[in-house]
């Protein structure tokens, strides 16, 4: 049997073309960096299993092409993903502005309770910087999304970003589980009645034992 794992989380990287989505993923999955630019064709994915609080979590990370012409293919993968990373390039103003469009894109196509995170990539290139860290933080606060500046080249915050997103998804999962029981707790009237019905069959013996 292949390696076992406890959970499978599907993550997705989106952002403009050339911001370094593939590099981030390459750094995370292979711990390597390639200086040359090869445009992603449509979609690709990499897998890495990480350990979160003693649970093996298999991350299937989808890397999408930023180019417009692949949009129909890439949007098809929004729905299945549990976490989405929005990547922009700190040396490219336009890619930062487009984050808003990407978020709108998520709202239209992805599942409603998807976890999001904004990454400002290429933060090692301080000389060419066009987007300050504060602006990135401001945007993140505006949308209430976590934010971190990364560098795939210097391996800065890449691990941290993926671990944070995976941990957020796991936390959401635990929370959901607690909330799902009792199901449909919204309708209070029904709940009350149901509880009363339930109390009857439990015998006095079992109730006594609780005391």
């Amino acid at each position: 049997m292949a390696k076992t794992y406890d959970y499978l989380f599907k993550l997705l990287l989106i952002g403009d073309s050339g911001v370094g989505k593939t590099s981030i993923l390459f750094r995370f999955s292979e711990d390597a960096f390639n200086i040359s630019f090869i445009s992603t064709i449509g979609i690709d994915f990499k897998i890495r299993t990480i350990d979160l609080d003693g649970k093996k979590v298999k991350l299937q990370i989808w890397d999408t092409a930023g180019q417009e012409r692949f949009r129909t293919i890439t949007t098809a993968y929004y729905r299945g993903s549990m976490g989405i990373m929005l990547v922009y390039d700190v040396t490219n103003e336009k890619s930062f502005e487009n984050i808003k469009n990407w978020i709108r894109n998520i709202e239209e196509n992805a599942s409603a309770d998807v976890e999001k995170m904004i990454l400002g990539n290429k933060c090692d290139l301080d000389a060419k910087r066009q987007v300050s860290k504060e602006r990135g933080e401001q945007l993140a606060i505006e949308y209430q999304i976590k934010f971190v500046e990364t560098s795939a080249k210097d391996s800065l915050n890449v691990e941290y970003a993926f671990y944070t997103l995976a941990r957020d998804i796991k936390a959401k999962m635990e929370k959901k589980q607690e909330a799902s029981n009792p199901p449909g707790a919204r309708s209070g009237a029904h709940q009350l009645r149901a509880n009363e019905q339930q109390r009857k069959p439990t015998s006095w013996l079992s109730r006594c034992s609780v005391l």
Binding site: I41, I43, F45, E68, I73
Partner: peptide, 29 residues
């Protein structure tokens, strides 16, 4: 938009096939 070329289509199909394998492992689990 310019339609996808044959090589592009093949590349995507290869990825999809790879993904299907992962999905199968997951389905079995």
């Amino acid at each position: 938009e310019p339609p996808l070329t044959a090589t592009e289509r093949e590349a995507i199909a290869a990825v999809v096939k790879r993904a299907e394998k992962v999905d199968e492992v997951e389905a079995r689990r």
